[in-house]
């Protein structure tokens, strides 16, 4: 699914944030990327959807070479990934339902099919009654569940989550973790999560990458 060799990431082209990263994430893996603040864990996740272009080395995501990828190929790659952010990134002009329909519409599902799938997912994330609400009418936990529903909507092979529970209380956080666990366990989706704290008793086998001074260690 994701293959990196001698991967170097840098914002200014000089100082490496990730240095000679080497790892291989298999299909159906559940991976945590941890590290202290500013260690580069979010930057590494960003590189998986080409939010940052690698400086050097090899990075293959879904067999797409991220060093040589063009704009249209990036769009194709992103269409097949589900992304979850700490700040939810729901479109505030869209209803919750329309937000969930976004990846479906981008993947050319018809309006009716998109709506049907969005409603199914709203039920799955326990937001059935909130479909017509605007995102700012929802609590943080509800917004993040809507964001998870959006990430799952088009049955992606890969979900990338950047601090998905960073802004949530324990109850909401557990709901999000359970949704991600189910996605991995029941749907076989590869999940890569950036977090600075892995929940206790996660209840699922996972792999853990630690970033320390720009180097990636698997533990």
């Amino acid at each position: 699914m994701i293959h990196a060799n001698n991967l170097c990431l840098s914002y200014d082209g000089k100082k490496d944030i990730i240095h000679n990263g080497k790892f291989h994430i298999q299909e159906k893996d559940f991976v945590f990327i941890t590290g202290s603040s500013g260690s580069g864990k979010s930057t590494l996740l960003k590189s998986f959807y080409n939010g940052i272009k690698p400086k050097s080395g090899t990075l293959l995501v879904n067999n797409t070479n991220m060093l040589k990828v063009g704009k249209s190929k990036i769009r194709e790659l992103r269409k097949n990934i589900g992304i979850i952010f700490q700040d939810y990134k729901l479109i505030k002009e869209y209803t919750v339902e329309e937000n969930i329909m976004l990846p479906l519409k981008l993947n050319n599902y018809g309006d009716a099919k998109s709506l049907e799938q969005a409603r199914k997912l709203l039920k799955h994330v326990k937001l059935s009654s909130k479909g017509h609400c605007m995102p700012d009418e929802l609590s943080g936990g509800e917004q993040q569940r809507a964001s998870v529903a959006r990430a799952l909507a088009h049955n992606p092979k890969l979900i990338l989550a950047d601090e998905p529970t960073g802004n949530l209380d324990d109850y909401s956080a557990e709901l999000v973790w359970s949704l991600l666990r189910k996605a991995n366990e029941q749907l076989g989706i590869t999940v890569v999560v950036v977090t600075h704290r892995i929940p206790d008793n996660f209840g699922l086998s996972y792999r853990k990458f630690d970033i320390l001074s720009g180097d990636i260690y698997e533990s």
């Binding site: 992304i83 976004l102 981008l106």
Partner: peptide, 12 residues
Amino acid sequence: ERLHIINLHGGS
């Protein structure tokens, strides 16, 4: 912001 989110999801 909306355009950025659409772009993150592969929208042109």
